[in-house]
Simulated scan of single mutants.
Amino acid sequence: MEVKSALDLVNAIIYKPGWRISAEDHTRRFEGAIVVRIDYPARASERDEAPDYEREINTYATFPLIVADCDDVGIYRRIVDKLIAIETHEIREFFRIQPTRWAPFHPHRIDGMKRWGDPDGDLQFGIA
C-alpha cells in the first residue's frame, strides 16, 4: 500500500470518546512506513491515587507501522492490536491488591514487566 493511502485510512479511524488516532509519514526513517499516535484520556494510576483515581491526565502512545505490504484490513488489524496493547497496559497499571494497593503487573516496574512476561517493556507512552 502507498503511504498516502495508509495515512488516509488511519486518520479516518474513530474509537472511544476522547481517543484520537492519527498518523504521519515516516519514510524519512523507514521505507514504506508511517508513525501512528494514539492520544487518549486516562487517570493517574499512582498507588496513592487508588482506589478512586480521580486525577485525569491526557496521554498517548506512538509506534511505527510499515505499510508497504499491507491492505486496508491488515492496517486496521494492526491498529486494533495496538489498541488492545494500550488497554492491557492500563489494566496492568490499575490492577491492585488491598490493603497495600500493590500492582503485581505494573508495566513501569521491572518486577511487574517480568511477572507479566514482558521484560523489554511495551509501547512508547507519554503525557500530552
Rank of each mutant, 00 (worst) to 15 (best):
E2V: 07
E2Y: 08
S5I: 11
S5Y: 09
S5M: 08
A6I: 02
A6C: 12
A6M: 04
L7M: 08
D8G: 07
D8P: 00
L9I: 15
L9C: 06
V10F: 04
V10Q: 00
V10A: 02
N11I: 01
I13K: 03
Y15A: 13
K16Q: 12
P17A: 01
P17L: 00
G18I: 06
G18F: 06
I21N: 09
I21Q: 09
S22E: 12
S22R: 14
A23T: 02
D25C: 05
D25H: 07
H26A: 06
T27I: 02
R29W: 10
F30V: 14
G32Y: 03
G32W: 02
A33S: 15
A33K: 01
I34K: 02
V35G: 03
V36C: 09
V36A: 03
R37W: 11
Y40D: 02
Y40L: 07
A42H: 10
R43A: 11
R43E: 09
R43P: 04
R43H: 14
A44R: 15
A44P: 01
E46Q: 14
E46F: 08
E46V: 06
R47A: 07
D48L: 08
D48R: 10
E49A: 09
E49M: 03
E49L: 00
E49G: 00
A50E: 08
A50L: 01
P51V: 01
P51H: 01
D52P: 01
E54C: 12
R55V: 13
R55P: 01
I57S: 07
I57K: 14
N58P: 04
T59F: 01
T59W: 13
T59Y: 05
Y60W: 15
T62L: 06
T62V: 15
T62Q: 15
T62P: 06
T62W: 06
P64V: 00
I66L: 10
A68G: 10
D71Y: 04
D72P: 02
D72H: 02
I75M: 01
I75F: 05
Y76V: 06
I79P: 00
V80M: 08
D81C: 07
K82T: 13
L83A: 03
L83Y: 08
L83E: 05
A85K: 15
A85C: 06
E87H: 13
E90K: 01
E90A: 07
I91K: 11
I91T: 12
E93M: 10
E93Q: 15
F94M: 09
R96C: 04
R96N: 08
P99E: 09
T100Y: 10
T100D: 13
T100N: 11
W102V: 13
W102H: 15
F105A: 01
P107D: 05
P107Y: 03
P107W: 00
I110T: 12
I110C: 04
D111P: 08
D111I: 10
D111R: 06
W116N: 10
G117D: 14
G117F: 09
D120G: 11
G121A: 07
D122Q: 10
L123N: 11
G126F: 12
G126M: 04
I127F: 13
A128Y: 14
A128C: 14
